[in-house]
Simulated scan of single mutants.
Amino acid sequence: MLTTTDAFSGMSVRDVPEAVAFWRDRVGLEVEDGPIATLRLPGGAQAILYPKPDHTPADFTVLNLVVPDVAAAIRELAEAGVEPIRYPDMGQDEDGAMRGRGPDIAWFEDPSGNIWSVLRT
């Protein structure tokens, strides 16, 4: 069995300062700036944001933020200029959330095109 002492995730971005500003100023998460930035996640976890000159956005959800109320989170993000992705045939409501097919969830893109979500578990 592997012995570990910690774990973290990471995602590539096209521009680290742009990513730092987005996650800090629009989403409201704590970010430690640097050439490779560290996104401090609720609960103590972290993810690194690293530059990749030929960045291609992930075509899957790279980060899920658990919230107590998806509709309220969508409204808060809209006030910061962040709108949900609307997928065809996903049955999303007028707010942009999918409900009743698993957890209530809404998806968004960061400035690099990576997909992330807010969801209620």
Rank of each mutant, 00 (worst) to 15 (best):
Leu2Tyr: 11
Asn64Lys: 00
Asp69Tyr: 12
Pro35Val: 12
Thr5Ser: 10
Gly43Ser: 07
Leu29Asp: 00
Val67Lys: 09
Ala71Glu: 14
Glu32His: 04
Glu109Asp: 10
Trp23Asn: 05
Ala71Tyr: 07
Asp110Cys: 05
Asp6Met: 03
Leu49Arg: 01
Ser12Cys: 09
Val66Arg: 03
Ala73Ser: 15
Asp104Thr: 04
Lys52Leu: 13
Leu65Ile: 15
Leu63Thr: 03
Gly113Ala: 01
Val27Trp: 04
Arg40Pro: 07
Trp23Tyr: 10
Val66Ser: 00
Ile115Asp: 08
Glu79Gly: 15
Leu65Ala: 05
Gly102Leu: 10
Gly102Ala: 10
Ala7Asn: 08
Ala72Leu: 06
Gly113Val: 03
Phe60Ala: 07
Ala72Thr: 03
Glu30Lys: 00
Arg99Trp: 12
Asp93Met: 09
Val118Asn: 10
Ala58Thr: 09
Gly102Cys: 05
Tyr50Pro: 02
Gly96His: 12
Pro68Tyr: 02
Leu119Asp: 05
Arg120Ala: 08
Gly10Thr: 11
Ile115Asn: 06
Ser117Met: 07
Ala106His: 02
Arg101Ile: 14
Gln46Leu: 09
Ile48Ala: 02
Lys52Met: 15
Pro51Phe: 04
Trp23Arg: 09
Phe108Tyr: 14
Thr121Pro: 15
Ala47His: 04
Asp95Ile: 01
Ala7Cys: 14
Lys52Arg: 15
Gly81Phe: 08
Arg40Thr: 13
Leu63Lys: 05
Arg101Ser: 14
Ala97Trp: 14
Arg40Ser: 12
Gln46Ile: 02
Met1Ala: 10
Val82Ser: 13
Met98Asn: 07
Arg14Glu: 14
